[in-house]
């Protein structure tokens, strides 16, 4: 893939840093977050961060893999540079959700799921996907 830094994306990346409290340039791409991530994300957490480091905001924002993060915090706990990939990913998801672009459809959610799931699954799901 050819990577061309995009100037206007720099502003959106610093906004993301402000919202999440993370400093993207702190990441030195060791890959430890990706190694421990149970979510089989592709692009993986460290790759999403590399996109941002390269100024490729849209590649990170539109990556489908951000929706597979389950906030287990393994990445954040293990990062030797005190970066929280989980927070950055949540910041990316929030951009969609605040644009009223939900990722689960309540209309089609199975009644069986709602009936048997513990409340925190449903409430967390609402927070992360709607």
């Amino acid at each position: 893939m050819l990577i061309n830094p995009v100037e206007k994306d720099q502003k959106r990346i610093s906004d993301l840093e402000l919202a999440t409290g993370e400093t993207i340039s702190d990441c030195y791409q060791c890959g430890k977050c990706t190694a421990g991530c149970p979510a089989s994300m592709d692009p993986a957490p460290s790759v999403l961060i590399q996109f941002l480091k390269l100024g490729q905001f849209e590649l990170a924002r539109n990556a489908e893999s951000i929706w597979s993060c389950m906030a287990c915090l393994t990445c954040s706990e293990r990062c030797p540079k005190n970066v929280s990939p989980a927070a950055i990913i949540e910041g990316l998801k929030n951009l969609h959700l605040r644009d009223m672009d939900p990722r689960v459809d309540l209309e089609t959610m199975s009644r069986d799921f709602l009936a048997r799931s513990p409340q925190m699954a449903i409430i967390s799901g609402f927070r992360k996907f709607i």
Binding site: M70, T74, V104, M109, F113, M120, K128
Partner: peptide, 11 residues
């Protein structure tokens, strides 16, 4: 290891 948590809603 993580059990998948709230991802049960989507995946």
């Amino acid at each position: 290891d993580c059990c998948g948590s709230y991802l049960v809603m989507r995946e």
